[in-house]
């Protein structure tokens, strides 16, 4: 029985190796291409960032794309759009020439987040100005720094505002206390019927 199952698995493995990269993917999303691409040297500023992955990106309101200029500043502005496996984020007109860094974090098909950086160079300065470099546009008290400047999805901000929660450690402490109570009760119950039998 086990031998059969093992044989089936080995056969599967062999078939898989033959199929190689052509087989459909599962697991973490992998960035296949981007526009601008890593190492690109551009004379004219791109209007948007396009990231193409090998499988669908989950649109749960937490995908982020940020573009940081050579002198800092944030150049991505507006909502991040997800169309199956393609993520796009609009850009402000770029400013100074130099290296720009695209940082992204997206939610994989498997529920894990995938993040990375892509660097491109603008060779001729444009007219644009960055979104205010001072983070946290008012009214977001306690939320992530610079959220107002970032190309987040609208739902993210709404959700963040509605969260009236407590820090993570409070949750963990609560869980541990509950566990202690549960264990004590269970062990009490376990020791009491000892006279039976």
């Amino acid at each position: 029985m086990t031998r059969l199952r093992r044989a089936a698995l080995i056969a599967g493995l062999a078939a898989l190796t033959l199929l190689g990269v052509a087989a459909p993917a599962s697991a973490h999303n992998v960035l296949i291409s981007s526009d601008p691409a890593e190492g690109d040297r551009l004379a004219t500023a791109p209007r948007q960032v396009t990231l193409t992955f090998d499988q669908e990106v989950q649109d749960a309101g937490t995908n982020e794309v940020a573009v940081t200029g050579p002198e800092g500043g944030r150049w991505a502005e507006g909502p991040v759009r997800v169309d199956r496996n393609v993520v796009t984020a609009p850009l402000r007109p770029l400013g100074p020439a130099g290296e720009y860094v695209i940082g992204f974090r997206i939610l994989s098909a498997d529920g894990h987040s995938v993040s990375d950086e892509i660097r491109f160079t603008l060779t001729e300065a444009g007219q644009g100005t960055p979104a205010s470099t001072s983070p946290a546009a008012g009214g977001q008290g306690g939320d992530q720094a610079g959220q107002g400047d970032q190309a987040n999805q609208g739902t993210d901000q709404e959700a963040a505002e509605s969260s009236t929660g407590v820090p993570v450690w409070v949750w963990i402490l609560g869980a541990v206390v509950l566990l202690a109570i549960g264990l004590t009760v269970a062990l009490r119950m376990g020791s009491s019927p000892g006279k039976r039998s």
């Binding site: 937490t62 939320d143 959220q147 969260s163 009236t164 407590v166």
Partner: peptide, 14 residues
């Protein structure tokens, strides 16, 4: 908490 990296606190709603 990992799902919402920006948030300092986690509520039941999250």
């Amino acid at each position: 908490a990992e799902f919402r990296p920006g948030a300092a606190t986690i509520g039941l709603g999250d």
